[in-house]
Computed example of a mutant assay.
Amino acid sequence: MARLRARPKVRSRKYGAAVPLSAEDRRLLNLLQGSFPLEERPFAPLAAALGRSEEDVIDRTAWLLRKRIIREITPIFDTRALGYRSMLVAAKVDPEHPHRAARVINEHPGVSHNYLRDHEFNLWFTIAVEPDSALGLEGTLDVLARLSGARSMRMLPTLRLFKIRMDLEMEATTDGLAAPVEAVEPRDPEPVPLSDWDIAVIRATQGPMEACPRPFDRAAARLGVGTDEVLASLASLRERGALRRVAAILYHRRAGFSANGMGVWKVPEERVLEVGPKMAAFRGISHCYQRPTYPDWPYSLFTMAHGRSKEECDAILAAVARETGIEERATLYSSTEFKKVRLLYFVDDYRRWEERYGG
């Protein structure tokens, strides 16, 4: 079994150290990540679940935001359901100065994640382009390869999606994270028809929300309608698959999850549909996809494990191997995070980038 181990750089990380959290904080973070309701006063049912007052829960949420444990509370839209094309890309860039290539690639507004990993393909990023992009995804990558000086870029689009769930389990032990829960069916989001009103709602609601009694009111004011109409529109987008949920996104390190390991697995094609759901069922696995293979890259299933240490990530991936019987794998750990943001949709930044760099 091949193992690829990162050699993390020793560096000062402002706001990087984990913050001690109480059991109540951890439970609140779990609720904010998975159970934030589409209601005019969404903190009220969260407070009821915690047995606390609405004011207390809002105040504590505001503290978690100030302490940079919560990155933001925001609607999470499905990129592909909105008609955007996206993929994971592995690039070979100058190993002595990878930050130079990363800086160029990060300028594209559709790059949401960009990591340095310990591999010949050392820069791994996700990118999305608009439905009406003049360059398209492949053309955009050609431009980025030229601008960044990348010697090679390998396109790794999603062939099958088994799981995407970006929340961190704040209460479970290592055994809990390394235990399978329930198998999931693969899903392949297709673009959904969007009206001008749908797009206006997406533009008005995307981005960080305030920790306040009525956080959806600001979007309603932008649109000149009642909050109930905004919530009804968001509920409709959720039912059609364009909105996954509204949730808190955490700073992993500040929340105590200092490691993420990308486990890649050599799975025979005839077993992908059997094995993928089993891998996705583990609580410590946030993402599970089937991606294309290449002569020098035989790994068809990708899983992302998040843990409070490298050892915890290793335990999660070892449990996946035991459950599935797949032993040919590699683990790529990130040593530097160059970019991690939420995408903004239907904004002018994409058009401006193409006008500037697309010729």
Score class of each variant (00 low, 15 high):
L4F: 05
P8G: 07
Y15C: 13
G16H: 08
P20V: 06
E24V: 14
L28V: 14
L29E: 04
L31I: 15
S35L: 12
R41C: 11
P42Y: 04
A44P: 09
G51V: 09
S53Y: 03
E54M: 11
D56Y: 14
L64F: 11
L65D: 10
R66I: 13
I69W: 01
R80A: 10
H99Q: 13
H99L: 12
A102T: 00
V104K: 00
I105L: 06
N106H: 11
E107M: 13
P109E: 07
H113S: 12
H119D: 15
E120S: 12
F121C: 04
F125I: 00
T126E: 11
A128D: 08
G136W: 00
L137H: 01
E138C: 05
A150F: 00
M155T: 07
L159I: 07
F162V: 07
E169G: 08
E169A: 15
E169N: 15
A178K: 03
P180K: 01
E182W: 07
P191N: 03
L194F: 10
D196S: 15
I199A: 01
T205A: 04
P213W: 01
P215E: 00
R222W: 04
G224P: 01
E229M: 10
S236W: 11
A242H: 01
R244I: 08
I249D: 12
L250P: 14
R254F: 05
A255H: 12
K266A: 12
Y294D: 03
D296F: 10
L301T: 05
F302G: 02
H306N: 13
K310R: 14
D314T: 11
A315H: 02
V320W: 02
T324I: 02
E328S: 05
V341A: 15
L343E: 09
L344N: 09
D349A: 14
W353A: 06
